[in-house]
């Protein structure tokens, strides 16, 4: 178990190093020049999901590692673009609008380039569908046609669901497991999104229910335990004060 954890830590470090390599531009690290600080949670969230879902017979392989890199880059791109204000002071225009637009575009293009170069083009369709739908929903949100919860689901929930499903599939899992893992990803992505967007407790509880439901659908065993621990730790990390009492996963109850 310990060596597995060590291996996962090493995998994660290597993936993060690859992500930073792709973030480099002539004048430095692209996300640094826009002065945006991404927390550890921000930088690790999607790679962790990929590693977690790579539980099939093929395990963590070249393609799942690439998936971890591109998923994180895609996420960073959306995070940078989706927070550009409609209006800003003239003095802030370069740092708050101009550079973030270009850096977001760069990451978006980089994501596409990595998939092409590393022969992972089969992942592209899901992401294109995701990015199309996300931008449509943002436009609907700007028109007051949908809620912030809808944006959360479209932005974080869908991405995490896709990422985990693709990782599980690439590692050799299929059928029932794919559906359950995707559902888990959707729930956990929404939880992450809820913390980022500061959503109400009700919304958080709904997402916790989705995560719980997905875990309950898993047959007892190592995989179920691993997911339970992940969900428990993550929610503890994200919502320290909010809903811990209501949050009891099977593995916690069992222990």
């Amino acid at each position: 178990m310990n060596s597995n954890i060590r291996n996962l830590d090493l995998e994660l470090s290597l993936i993060i190093a690859r992500i930073y390599k792709h973030l480099k531009i002539k004048s430095g690290i692209s996300i640094d020049i826009i002065g945006k600080n991404f927390s550890n949670n921000d930088m690790l969230f999607f790679p962790q999901l990929v590693l977690l879902a790579s539980y099939g017979p093929k395990g963590i392989n070249k393609k799942t590692r690439t998936l971890a890199v591109v998923s994180q880059i895609m996420y960073l791109s959306t995070e940078i673009h989706n927070q550009i204000p409609e209006k800003t002071k003239v003095s802030n225009f370069k740092s708050k609008v101009q550079l973030p637009i270009l850096v977001g575009d760069l990451l978006y293009s980089r994501f596409y380039e990595i998939l092409c170069i590393e022969d992972c083009i089969e992942f592209l369709d899901d992401y294109i569908e995701y990015i199309s739908q996300l931008n449509l929903n943002w436009i609907n949100y700007l028109n007051n046609e949908i809620s912030l919860e809808d944006i959360c689901a479209s932005w974080y929930g869908e991405l995490a669901g896709i990422v985990m499903e693709l990782a599980a599939k690439t590692s050799g899992l299929n059928g029932y497991w794919l559906k359950v893992i995707k559902r888990y990803g959707y729930g956990i992505g929404n939880l992450f999104g809820a913390s980022k967007l500061g959503l109400e407790v009700n919304a958080v509880n709904t997402y916790l229910d989705i995560v719980n439901e997905a875990i309950n659908l898993m047959p007892p065993g190592e995989l179920k335990d691993t997911f339970s621990v992940h969900a428990h730790n993550l929610s503890k990390n994200l919502f320290t004060d909010v809903i811990q009492d209501q949050f009891e996963f099977s593995v916690v109850a069992e222990s």
Partner: peptide, 27 residues
């Protein structure tokens, strides 16, 4: 339409352009 709309419209158009290439067939 405003800045934010333009931002999302540009991203949407880029995605549609990639789709049009049909990357799986035209690597």
């Amino acid at each position: 339409w405003g800045n934010k709309f333009s931002l999302h419209a540009g991203d949407y158009l880029f995605a549609q352009a990639i789709k049009l290439i049909n990357p799986q067939r035209n690597k």
